[in-house]
Design a protein around this nucleic acid. Structure first.
Lengths: 150, 150
DNA sequence: TGACAAATAGGAACTAATCTTATTTAAGAG
DNA sequence: CTCTTAAATAAGATTAGTTCCTATTTGTCA
């Protein structure tokens, strides 16, 4: 990620925090910076270990609480998983996911064809739909290559 | 569910277990029967508490292991969640999910319009896609009614 | 009917998430 | 710039969810 883009996203993040009357602490900014640099939909623990390099005595709880707070104000998203620890996604634009069942990697993709997944009338009339996503399960390039060998 | 349909599904379940060299134990059958009667995508703990009525000294581990085994051989599915305990779905037909963010309910639906969600070429050429599902987040009828009151 | 691998019960161990409390700090008021 | 106060943090304890371990039991096949 470009330095410039990063700075821009951090600015936006800070703005959103202010709008929600959240204090801008160095820890929160550090956590957010780590998160937007990660392409791996990390767990709280992974973020904790990364941010610990910059803040050696930050506590796990601070990281975990920050991530939950970020999700509440909508600057990050909790990703759908199939058990295991929560994973966080700093990309809040509409996009879709492929889950590799072998290595657990989650690959983001955007696709025009899914752009306006209409909601069935029967659903739309009774439920308030907030977000839509296509979730694919499969094997990523690396793992399907490995399988071929057997 | 009709008695007849139930018996048929259990027969199929037993067949699949045999195909995978799994022993047909009364516990496994009991757990499976509970699961196919549930419309709530229950957690292991919920299944455990229900099946305990029939098998008073079944252990949680037996239930949990059975459910994982069932998922491995494909007779049930682990449902996508946003943190929290694993949830299991006895419906292995293609279908989609609406997650109520307020009460946690997961509503199944089928929709012709999603029937063949084509996979983008860029994905299809590098990944082996095994299943596809549309995941909607929102508020269910009951919860959106409650919100209206404020 | 007997032999054996697989499954179960029960409890221990482990991992993830949340809570508690004392201390520190961001940010608005003066 | 300093003071005040509510909010946030660190550290450790607690709880929830899941998996592991071991002795015992039980399906299944010969």
């Amino acid at each position: 990620m470009q330095n410039k883009e990063m700075a821009q996203r951090v600015r936006l993040f800070i703005e959103t925090c202010r709008r929600h009357q959240l204090k801008i602490t160095p820890q929160r900014v550090g956590i957010y910076r780590i998160l937007i640099q990660s392409k791996r939909h990390p767990t709280a623990d992974l973020v904790y270990r990364a941010v610990k390099k910059e803040f050696p005595n930050i506590s796990f709880d601070t990281v975990n609480r920050a991530l939950s707070t970020f999700a509440e104000i909508g600057v990050v998203e909790v990703v759908e998983t199939f058990g295991g620890p929560k994973r966080f996604d700093p990309d809040i634009k509409d996009h879709h996911h492929l889950h590799c069942m072998a290595c657990g990697r989650i690959i983001d993709f955007e696709y025009e064809g899914y752009a306006r997944l209409e909601v069935p009338k029967a659903i739309a009339s009774t439920f308030k739909v907030i977000s839509r996503r296509v979730v694919l399960k499969g094997l990523c390039d690396t793992c399907s290559a490995k399988q071929q060998m057997f």
